[in-house]
């Protein structure tokens, strides 16, 4: 192992780290914001509303992220109409294509996760909300969604990590994320172990940071479900 290679190229890795974090966080935010209404419509809407959402989720969950990304980045340019539209300056950029694909992909998975946890809402809670005279929107805001988010958290944390791992595909369409940085270093020095192990360390660090914060959030949100003795800090008399 030659650590000098990594030390002299740490700038590329930091640039990659920045791009990975931007890609992941922006697509997660857009994906989540779109997924909430879709999940609600998927559970409560009529068949005509449900069908397109189902098709969307089916497509994005049933095909590889790589193929979806190629479809957007290389595929959209096939159409004359697309190349002449106002959107072309956006879809010509690899960065935007990656963001677009990742956001839709995580949106599909998140829709399914939130749908699952909405469906798991106990009947009694909904009946109580109705009996208290809440409108559907108020019921969603106060009763259904808060408890659904709480139930969705473990599965969603997995989705965050999968998105982080999936974002490494951006390096295939010329974006310099952490993997992209590693590929540059590897091709310059032909030292795959140093290059890719450094990338692996970066990814592991991000993964475990995410896991750490999700655990914190879980403790905060599910405080009322925890066994009592775990919550109290035990006060013991000093032993003599």
């Amino acid at each position: 192992m030659d650590f000098a290679i990594i030390a002299s190229n740490i700038d590329i890795y930091l640039e990659g780290l920045k791009n990975t974090l931007i890609l992941v966080s922006i697509s997660l935010i857009f994906g989540l914001v779109m997924a909430i209404p879709l999940a609600v419509l998927r559970t409560s809407g009529n068949l005509y509303v449900q069908a397109p959402i189902r098709a969307f989720v089916y497509f994005f969950r049933g095909t590889p992220l790589l193929v979806q990304m190629f479809l957007v980045y290389y595929g959209f340019g096939q159409f004359e109409a697309m190349r002449e539209s106002v959107l072309w300056p956006l879809f010509r950029e690899a960065y935007f294509c990656a963001l677009f694909t990742f956001a839709l992909n995580t949106c599909a998975y998140t829709t399914e996760i939130i749908r699952g946890s909405i469906v798991a809402t106990p009947h009694g809670e909904i009946e109580a909300a109705r009996a208290a005279g809440m409108s559907t929107f108020l019921m969603l805001r106060r009763i259904v969604l808060p408890s659904a988010f709480r139930r969705a958290l473990p599965a969603y944390s997995n989705e965050i990590i999968f998105m982080l791992h999936g974002s490494s595909l951006a390096s295939v369409i010329t974006i310099i994320d952490i993997t992209g940085a590693a590929r540059i270093v590897n091709s310059r020095y032909y030292s795959p172990w140093e290059a890719f192990l450094t990338a692996a360390v970066f990814y592991m660090a991000i993964t475990f940071t995410i896991v750490f914060f999700v655990r914190k959030l879980e403790k905060l949100w599910q405080r009322h479900l925890m066994p009592l003795e775990q919550l109290d800090t035990k006060i013991e008399a000093p032993s003599i």
Binding site: S167, I178, F196
Partner: peptide
């Protein structure tokens, strides 16, 4: 734990290029 922390693509490139060396 390690597998959970590293993307598939990085792992594959590591095995492919690293294995070669």
């Amino acid at each position: 734990t390690v597998i959970r922390g590293i993307p598939d693509l990085v792992m594959m490139l590591l095995v492919f290029f690293g294995g070669q060396v």
